[in-house]
Design a binder for these strands. Structure first.
Lengths: 134, 134
DNA sequence: GTTCTTGCAAAATATTTGCAAGACG
DNA sequence: CGTCTTGCAAATATTTTGCAAGAAC
């Protein structure tokens, strides 16, 4: 299965630009969530940080990516994968610092007090991943 | 039941200072989580922001307070209440911006892949609270 | 009196805004 | 060509660090 970033952009009604394609590609190829700084470093040439932030904000608004806020207040992003569902817990390894989506784990439900209504839920689990536990 | 901030500090091996007592008192009296800025505004006199940050970091290290990172990347703090357990979901109302602990709701459990180990878990539920839903 | 805490100045970090030049369709 | 996007400069917000003066015990 190949990934066509330009089709992807078109599908969300966005015009095709080099930066947007690069960001999408990097997120698609990555097996972990990436921070703005990590994205910047992985980009081919030097990229303007402002444009990167604007691109990420746009993708987030279009729900093309998930924004993950970690306990250390840093931000990472993953490409939304419709097959994995739009909401699931994320795991943050405290040793290697990687953040991954937890597959096949639907968001656990909480009992809410009467009168409250939910719009979104985010669960971050911190610990050590299987690679670092070896 | 009264709250003695100086006893509280002593119990955690911290020396008693005016700022620490003020911060503890404000957190104790509040029915919602407070941001550094909100704490600063609620303080009697003007307070040095650096001291406030250092105080909050210290309390967090001693596990006297919970640090809650919201989706908008702001930080709020609540006093740890041993009766409510040390970990539970937090609810963030998108209308009034209040953040409260969800009482009687233990942290929902997630199935983790083999080899992963958990150190902490945080769940933030965003939505509208019963007051704002009326 | 020695150690811990505070307050100030300044730095580091992350993110946003305004605007003119440039690219997209 | 008109609109959307980019890049630069600069602003804003948040949090941290170094250090000397002051308070706690």
């Amino acid at each position: 299965m190949t990934f066509h970033s330009s089709d992807y952009l078109k599908r969300f009604g966005l015009s095709k630009t080099a930066i947007r394609e690069d960001v999408l590609m990097l997120l698609f190829e990555s097996d972990e969530a990436l921070s703005p700084k990590e994205l910047e470093e992985k980009m081919d040439g030097p990229i303007d940080r402002v444009t990167l932030y604007r691109t990420l904000k746009l993708f987030d608004e279009k729900k093309m990516i998930h924004k993950i806020i970690l306990e250390d207040q840093t931000t990472k992003y993953v490409l939304v994968n419709p097959e994995k569902g739009t909401q699931h817990p994320h795991f943050h390894c405290l040793i290697c610092d990687k953040v991954v989506c937890l597959p096949n784990s639907p968001l656990p439900s909480c009992q809410l007090p009467v009168g409250f209504s939910v719009q979104s839920q985010s669960t971050i689990i911190e610990g050590t991943c299987q690679r670092c536990n070896k």
